[in-house]
Amino acid sequence: MDYFANIEHLLYAVSRVFLMPVLLLIAFSLLYAIAMLGAFFVEGWQRRRQPGTERLLRATRQKLQRMDISSGDMELYILKRLEWLRVVSRTAPMLGLIATMIPMGPALLALGNGDATEVGKNMVAAFSAVILALLAASVSFFILTVRRRWLLQDLQEAERALLLQTESV
């Protein structure tokens, strides 16, 4: 039985090591989501002033350094542009769950010992982490959804422009 207790203590120690990196990843995710929210508002304001097709064609041409652009090249550009938003929107909730579960062990032990202060301290850390992670995921998912629509509309318009360009030649 002592063997299993040693395994439990080892697992607890290993999981506790991951708490700080997970909390840092949640903080970075939240900062990234806030930065992307600002960029999203700027892009929305720019889209009202300038059509997106020219921007998409110009950005893709600069990226590829050639004039013959296929729709596959533009789709790849769009996927690369949305990649980190997708990663944050999908991983932040998982990080929040990890950051919730790690402090729950000490909180339950403190509850068993009748130490309400320690329970409260661990629960605040657990719930704060999951709230911030869900906030980062929600903001990232919202931006991802709208930006994907914008870029796919731009792609459709760019394909039409390229088709008209090749027909006129």
Rank of each mutant, 00 (worst) to 15 (best):
F4M: 15
A5K: 10
A5I: 04
N6K: 04
N6H: 07
N6R: 04
L10T: 02
L10P: 00
L11E: 12
Y12H: 14
Y12F: 12
Y12W: 06
A13F: 10
R16W: 04
R16V: 04
V17L: 14
F18N: 15
L19Y: 13
L19C: 12
L19T: 08
M20P: 10
P21K: 03
V22G: 09
V22C: 14
L23E: 10
L23F: 05
L24P: 01
I26V: 14
A27Q: 10
A27Y: 07
A27L: 14
S29G: 13
S29C: 11
L30P: 00
L31G: 13
L31D: 08
Y32L: 11
Y32N: 10
Y32Q: 09
A33K: 11
I34E: 06
I34Q: 08
A35N: 05
M36L: 04
M36S: 05
L37A: 14
L37K: 06
L37F: 15
G38W: 12
F40K: 13
F40I: 12
F40G: 15
F41D: 02
F41R: 06
V42C: 10
E43N: 11
G44P: 05
W45M: 15
W45F: 15
Q46I: 03
R48N: 12
R48Q: 14
Q50E: 13
Q50K: 08
Q50M: 08
P51K: 09
P51E: 12
P51Y: 11
G52I: 01
R55W: 09
L56C: 01
L56I: 02
L57Q: 07
T60S: 10
T60R: 05
T60F: 02
Q62I: 07
K63Y: 09
K63R: 13
K63S: 03
K63C: 02
K63L: 07
K63P: 00
Q65A: 14
R66M: 10
M67L: 14
I69Q: 11
I69R: 12
S70F: 03
S70D: 06
G72Q: 06
D73C: 00
D73R: 00
D73K: 00
L76R: 11
L76V: 07
Y77D: 01
I78V: 03
L79I: 12
K80N: 07
K80S: 01
R81M: 09
R81L: 08
L82Y: 06
L82G: 01
E83V: 01
E83A: 05
W84Q: 06
